[in-house]
Simulated scan of single mutants.
Amino acid sequence: MSIRIKLAASLVALSLASASFAQSPATKPERIRGDIVSLSGNTLTVHRRSGDTVTVTLSDASKVSAVKAIQLSDIKQGSYVGAAAVPGPDGKLTATEVLVFPDVARGTGEGHYAYDLGANSSMTNANVDTVVEGTSGRDLKLSYKGGSNTVTVPTNAPVVTLAPATRADLVAGKKVFVVAAPANGGAHTAQFVVVEKDGVAPPM
């Protein structure tokens, strides 16, 4: 299997997981953000931003990836993106980060839904219809099944795409983003792991 296909499969997993737990709060997976404390066997220990420490079990199905930084100018008309955003004072959406999907992953997780990357944040997985240069960034007109919106991407917002990684990259001190399914007794089973690599931390 090529790296391109592996990355596309990982993005599909991330997108579908995000969409599913946005729509099913009773059984939603959990997003875990923080720093790796250790990896012992299949047990990943993470010190969360909130201050607590959790353990996450990795299974054979757990996907591990990294992200690499790209330029705002790499977002083109026709790109398929995932944009986390918050409303500004005027109510318009301002991106806090943008993930650019490979073409083979186009359409995964499509839609606009609530997200937990800050107060009142949202996630839009959509096609870029138009790109308009602004005084403080670029305005993206996004369309998805059932709707559309415009997101302003500031020049300082992280713009990334997925990059290869393995469990060997899960080392202490690295920042990590985990989509995990809750298990009995407060345990978690990882579905998707994005780890810091080459100095680029997962912004999602």
Rank of each mutant, 00 (worst) to 15 (best):
R4W: 04
K6T: 14
A9P: 01
A9D: 15
V12H: 13
L16P: 00
L16A: 08
A17S: 14
S18V: 04
S18C: 09
Q23C: 03
R31D: 01
I32E: 04
R33Y: 05
G34K: 09
G34V: 03
I36Y: 06
V37C: 15
V37I: 15
S40Q: 15
S40P: 09
T45E: 08
V46Q: 03
H47D: 08
S50V: 09
D52M: 04
T55W: 00
S59P: 02
D60Q: 12
D60L: 12
S62I: 11
S62K: 03
V64N: 06
V67P: 05
D74G: 01
K76P: 00
K76Y: 02
S79W: 02
V81S: 12
V81K: 07
P87W: 05
D90N: 15
K92G: 03
T94A: 13
E97C: 13
F101S: 10
P102Y: 11
P102A: 12
D103A: 15
V104I: 14
T108G: 00
T108F: 07
G109H: 07
G109V: 10
G111K: 06
H112E: 09
G118N: 00
N120L: 09
M123G: 09
T124M: 14
N125Q: 14
A126Y: 06
A126I: 08
N127R: 11
V128E: 06
D129H: 10
D129A: 15
V131E: 06
E133Y: 03
G134F: 01
G134D: 08
G134I: 01
R138M: 02
D139C: 00
L142G: 02
Y144L: 08
Y144P: 11
K145F: 07
G147K: 13
T150P: 04
V151C: 02
V151F: 02
T152S: 10
V153R: 04
V153L: 06
T155A: 13
T155W: 08
N156C: 00
P158L: 07
V159R: 02
A163R: 02
A165Q: 07
R167V: 08
V171Y: 00
V171T: 15
G173D: 02
K174H: 13
F177S: 13
V179H: 07
P182Y: 11
A183S: 14
G186I: 12
G186K: 14
H188E: 08
T189E: 15
A190C: 10
D198E: 14
